[in-house]
Write a protein that binds this DNA or RNA. Structure first.
Lengths: 149, 149
DNA sequence: TCGTTCTGTAACTTTAAGGGTTATAGTTAA
DNA sequence: TTAACTATAACCCTTAAAGTTACAGAACGA
């Protein structure tokens, strides 16, 4: 359905910003954690900024921080910020076929309803919940190191 | 990386098989309608066969037909037949990062719940419903031709 | 029974979108 | 003024979906 990994990466970033004691994290540090490029991080955070999830400070010693309290950022918020245009992708329309040329309208309502039905589930889980869960997992694993590095 | 269009194409095929008066449709005719290759059609129908949605007859004058009544094939059935492994795609795990290495387990339950929540919406729409809707649309459009070609 | 017309699949090639990279303008702290 | 950041455009690379070729197996009909 979706080829992009933005939802997972965005969640990772939010947990990171919440867990780290530092108030500002720059894109190089986040990129190191996700093993990607700082530009990729900044591009993805651009989506989260326009949804008021993350904010940034430019210039020397700048970086990113959560714009809302972690208990006020749900997975549904992150989903909306990273969602793609079409919930179900469609092949190119064949104008000579009346099924193909009407398929979008035929499937539109049910696709919208299916996507919206996820809201009830995803809005109940917040970045605070996930951060606490992570702490419990790490305690059980008895890992003797920082959560982020 | 590219996202699959199998859900849309599978729905197209089921409506086609339902609407056409002929009892058997071959992959060449379906490919012409979707503007793709017969092999692509047969590969996709393989998924629908294993879910008892479509059946086939080999040999000369062979082809495909709906294995169930159209009112007993829902969009949820088609979704399950064409769904991919991961509901939300994840980037490669960074073992050096405790967030990355635990992200799958952190997101697992909510992802499963979100996917399952679509069932309530998609199982209410059947191939019969979509076929009837298409007929209404075509009547309104006043198109003076066959629905399939 | 032999040729024709289908399905089923494997193996390979092509294409396009996600993601990585380079470059550079703008911003802020020291 | 310099250094360390963000923001973004423009490009390149990689990979999975989709397309293609090839052929074995199945069924029909002359």
């Amino acid at each position: 359905m979706k080829a992009s990994t933005n939802y997972s990466k965005a969640t990772h970033i939010c947990i990171y910003l919440n867990i780290k004691e530092k108030e500002l994290i720059n894109s190089a540090e986040l990129a190191e954690s996700i093993k990607t490029n700082p530009v990729v991080i900044r591009r993805l955070i651009g989506l989260l900024k326009s949804h008021e999830i993350i904010a940034s400070i430019s210039g020397a010693n700048g970086g990113f921080y959560l714009k809302r309290e972690p208990e006020n950022i749900s997975l549904w918020d992150i989903y909306l910020a990273t969602r793609e245009e079409d919930f179900f992708k469609r092949p190119k329309v064949n104008p000579a076929c009346l099924i193909s040329s009407n398929l979008e309208i035929l499937l539109h309502d049910s696709s919208l309803a299916a996507e919206l039905s996820m809201k009830n589930e995803l809005e109940t889980i917040t970045i605070k919940d996930l951060s606490l869960n992570l702490m419990h997992i790490v305690e059980e694993q008895g890992v003797d190191e920082e959560v982020t590095n």
